[in-house]
Amino acid sequence: MAKIKELAKKRDILSPGHRLCAGCGASIAVRQILSASDDPVVVANATGCLEVATTIYPYTSWRSSFIHNAFENAAATISGVETMYQSLKKQGKIDKEIKFIAFGGDGGTYDIGLQSLSGALERGHDFVYVCYDNEAYMNTGIQRSSATPRGAWTTTSPCGKVIPGKTQYRKDLTGVVAAHKIPYVAQATLWRWNDLIDKAHKAFYTKGPAFLNILSPCPRGWRFPSEDTIKMTKLAIQTNFWPLYEVENGKWKLNYKPKERLPITEWMEPQGRYKHLLTPENKHLVEEIQQEIDENWERLLILCGEK
């Protein structure tokens, strides 16, 4: 388990002065995750908030080697970097221990980058892929993605007179990745920082591909005050909206079980994007969403051998 005093001594790879919004979950996730590597890292980043806010030429916030290629290809790009490393290592041209990690948002991972990710996982590169999931295309101005939860308002799933926000459930990306049978897959988020850093450490030091899906609140897109970012992730865990679990060599394990599951309305109420749902006429939608969450939780308990 990570010790916060030790972690605080580490020099951040993502340096202060970047231009991400106040309260952005992505920068917190990135700093926590990168603190878990004891070796130098090469970072690849999909186009998105994290990339545009940290690499505005002629500045960079990255103290490690960093490559941004395009939106949909962070996994393919890091697979190229990692393969060159393996090639040069085999040829005796490099001997240093280096870790390889790619960051993509949910748009760059669930949607446009899914093929690239799937390919890289199947090929078995030794790398970590992190999806910082803020549940919409935040960089282009809050458009719905396949990670946007049902009922949420976005600029392309607006609350109209006949359609109340996004009508579809979100894609179970962690499950999709687990189906690739890679050595390590985990879901985590910021409130349980220890859980996150432990998972990141495991991901770095697992041979082969590892995947972390990190819920990363977006104050702008979710419509909540920027000081409540960590609180949002706490509510996500306690309502079972974002369960913490890992799949290690095919073995599913639940990492946190709320003492008492809070109703999904607790998660929705502080977020402006759900405002329209919390009205009497949309009560049935909230009930359906609650039911879906409960069913997913039951399924997860079975997968994790808790039932």
Binding site: I67, N73, A76, T77, I78, S79, G80
Partner: peptide
Amino acid sequence: ESEHSAMSACVGAAAA
């Protein structure tokens, strides 16, 4: 798994 990834991986590998 595609030419898009072929060129993307080439960019990563060459930059490496």
